[in-house]
Computed example of a mutant assay.
Amino acid sequence: MTAASVERIDGVRCTTGESPAWDAAAKAWYWVDIPAKRVWRLDAASKTRFWELPEMAGCVAPRARGGLIAGMETGMYDVDLFDNGTVATALLGKPADLGAGMRFNDGRTDRQGRFWSGTMFMDMSAAKDIGKLYRYDGHGLSQPLVSGLLTQNGLSWSPDGKTMYLSDSHPQSRLVWAFDYDVATGTPSNRRVFANLAEHVGRPDGAVVDADGCYWTCANDAGCLLRFTPSGKLDRRIDLPFAKPSMCTFGGADLRTMIVTSIVSGKPDDAEWGGSVVLLRPGVQGLADAACAF
């Protein structure tokens, strides 16, 4: 177990903070507050601001041409944020089975700049395993590549891009899988269990792989980060000041700063920190996520 000094980002409290992403070109962090329909930015001058979106976004990632790509309630969208506070969105693709009560959830780019995100049924108490995983690239939105998901989460890729990680954070699953990944076609195969958090603590929420190839997952409900080696061995735990960490990623000029979002738990002992967004230095270097190239 390791303690880490965390820096709280002032003036930010999210109901469901999610999908932090480092935009190296803009030298800025982005993340979303899902139910508030907001996308936040923290710039190099430590100034924060947010934009109101027309619908909930579960995830965002920077695009190489500028702006963001987002997985939202009704599809994947191109999102442009303007200094005057306005937002422009354009639909990139919508799955045929993205029905009422569903939305996109966790998302991330692979090493080649393809954007991946999965769908979920928002009422987790219903435990509907109708979530599916999709890829967006130069051919548009793919057909489902993985099906049968309750609460899709935990996307990340190994340093060489040849292993894809995916989790299901629903209480009835709590699994992280690894896949062989064809970097030329963006196709996952050979799905196998990488980590079962029922053997550890919490639920595997958003995640990121570091430069050593280790997989960091936010252990939701357990208030910590867990790092697994490429062989699936737990080798490190960092406790956090909130109960429900939701996603983490690396950024900053040296890629040694980690940002972690969180969710309001509603518990009295979590009232001070729940929903906050923090920065920390875990002592390892991250990898630069590719901007969405399509």
Rank of each mutant, 00 (worst) to 15 (best):
G93D: 15
G93T: 09
G93K: 06
K94D: 05
K94F: 08
K94I: 10
K94M: 11
P95F: 04
P95R: 03
A96Q: 09
A96T: 08
A96F: 02
A96K: 10
D97Y: 01
D97C: 02
D97H: 03
L98S: 09
L98T: 11
L98V: 07
G99S: 11
G99I: 05
G101K: 05
M102A: 01
M102N: 14
M102V: 05
R103S: 11
F104H: 01
F104L: 11
N105G: 00
D106C: 12
G107W: 07
R108N: 13
R108P: 13
R108W: 10
R108H: 13
R108C: 13
T109H: 02
T109K: 04
D110Q: 14
D110F: 13
D110W: 09
D110P: 15
Q112P: 11
Q112G: 12
G113M: 09
G113K: 12
R114L: 08
R114Y: 08
F115W: 09
W116D: 14
W116N: 13
W116F: 13
S117K: 02
S117D: 12
S117T: 15
G118R: 00
G118P: 07
G118C: 04
T119E: 13
T119L: 02
T119W: 00
T119D: 07
T119K: 04
M120A: 01
M120Y: 08
M120S: 06
F121I: 07
F121V: 14
F121S: 00
M122S: 04
M122V: 13
M124D: 11
M124A: 12
M124Y: 03
S125G: 08
S125H: 08
A126V: 05
A126D: 00
A126S: 09
A126P: 00
A127W: 02
A127K: 11
A127F: 01
D129C: 13
I130A: 04
I130H: 03
G131W: 02
K132N: 07
K132W: 00
K132C: 09
Y134C: 06
Y134P: 10
R135D: 06
R135P: 13
R135N: 15
R135L: 10
D137H: 08
D137A: 12
D137C: 09
G138P: 10
H139W: 00
H139A: 14
G140A: 07
L141A: 10
L141P: 12
S142A: 04
Q143V: 04
Q143R: 08
Q143S: 10
Q143G: 07
Q143T: 11
Q143H: 08
P144M: 03
P144I: 03
P144D: 04
L145H: 09
L145C: 04
L145Y: 06
V146G: 01
V146A: 03
V146P: 02
V146C: 06
S147G: 00
S147H: 01
S147Y: 01
G148R: 04
G148C: 05
G148V: 00
L149F: 00
L149S: 06
L149T: 11
L150Q: 02
L150I: 10
L150K: 02
L150V: 04
T151V: 14
Q152W: 03
Q152M: 05
N153H: 05
G154H: 08
G154E: 11
L155I: 14
L155Q: 07
S156E: 09
S156T: 15
S156R: 15
S156D: 15
